[in-house]
Simulated assay, not measured.
Amino acid sequence: MNQVKTLGLLSLLAGLLVAIGYAIGGSGGALVGLLIAAATNFFSWYSSDKIALAAYQAQPIAPEQAPELYQMVQGLCDRAGLPMPKLYVVPTSAVNAFATGRDPHHAAVAVTQGIVQLLPKDELEAVIAHELSHIQNRDTLTQAVAATVAGAISYIAQILQFGMMFGGGRDREQGGNPIVAIATILLAPLAASVIQMAISRTREFEADAGSARITGNPRALASALQRLEAMAQQRPIPVNPSFEPLLIMNALPKQMFSSLFSTHPSTQKRIENLLKIEQQMLTASNAGSII
């Protein structure tokens, strides 16, 4: 279901890009918008690991530096059928983690010093399984597409705005409605941002479910999320908002309309969903034992 929602939201975002491109330059403008998005998508996807790791000042760690962590990640990868990613540590006492990379063979998992030190083993395992699920689902590619299409929409809206200010633009030339153009300038970037955040939330729900499948222990991730939220309020990780969708937990304080503009679902909803998955697993297990 989360995969279907993501596909629908991406389609809606692409349609919005085409519409605003058409508003500024007809079919030619729509094509320009798509080309801009395609070029920026490729760059963001291909360089995602380097950009994200540099943004968080993540440092590579060797197997001899953290043998237990390497053993844990390797065991989870074996269960998930994934190649071993590169491991990094973010030098901060904040508690968080993220995965990045353009595909499972060029992936990295980064954990903060705080999360390694403070989480019990089963909860840390569940968090890492969540990040491996992002890799398995190629969510970096999905997020890159969403972010860059949303960025292209904002860019084209600015072009339309300058065109109207200085006497250009398709509306004036062809007798279009200036009120529609103004509404497009104001609302299109906002709509794109809302859709982008909704896509991010669907990917988090799917990664939570993936963690439950890999570990067989949904309650461990539910407990970890509850613990992480409490700790994040006390020790948030400094982050550019552009990179917040990568994290397992929101790094920034909650604000007004947070549910609409948040990159992550509420922790309570995530916990409720995980407990439903646990119940489904128990039901399936009991049914199998009876048979």
Rank of each mutant, 00 (worst) to 15 (best):
A144W: 05
P245E: 02
D171G: 12
T100L: 11
G15K: 09
Q174G: 10
A58G: 03
G28F: 10
S223C: 14
Q234C: 02
G210Y: 10
R219T: 04
P178L: 04
A110C: 02
D49L: 13
F261R: 06
G33A: 03
L87R: 10
Y22L: 12
Q3F: 14
T148Q: 10
F205L: 00
T140M: 11
A62C: 13
W45L: 13
R201H: 08
T148R: 15
L186P: 06
P60T: 07
Q280V: 12
Q65I: 03
L17G: 02
I153D: 01
G8H: 10
K5H: 09
G114W: 02
Q74P: 05
L53V: 09
N273R: 15
L221R: 04
S211F: 06
A284D: 08
R235W: 14
L12S: 13
L225R: 06
P253H: 14
A110F: 05
T263F: 02
A108W: 01
Q117P: 01
S211Q: 05
A129M: 07
S289Y: 00
D78M: 12
G114Q: 06
I185D: 00
R102C: 03
A157E: 07
L275G: 04
R227H: 15
P63L: 07
N217T: 03
G33C: 01
D208N: 03
Q74V: 00
A188S: 04
I277V: 14
A198I: 13
R201M: 09
S47I: 12
I290K: 09
A152F: 02
N217V: 00
R102M: 13
L132M: 01
L87H: 11
P178N: 06
S211Y: 11
V145G: 04
A110V: 06
M281E: 15
D122G: 03
D49P: 07
I61M: 09
K5Q: 14
N273Y: 11
R213W: 01
S285M: 01
L190M: 09
G168I: 07
R219D: 07
Y22A: 14
D103I: 01
F166A: 03
T283C: 12
M249Y: 04
Q136M: 08
L124Q: 00
P91M: 04
M281G: 13
E125L: 07
Y56N: 05
G81A: 08
R138M: 10
V95Y: 15
A94M: 01
L69E: 03
L275Q: 07
I153Y: 06
L221E: 09
S154E: 00
I36A: 05
L76E: 07
S11M: 14
E244H: 14
G33I: 06
N217W: 01
V194P: 05
P265F: 09
G288W: 14
N273D: 13
I24L: 12
V109I: 10
I182S: 05
G101M: 08
I290C: 04
Q280D: 15
L13P: 06
K276S: 14
K276L: 14
V127T: 07
S259T: 09
E278L: 02
V89Y: 00
G169R: 05
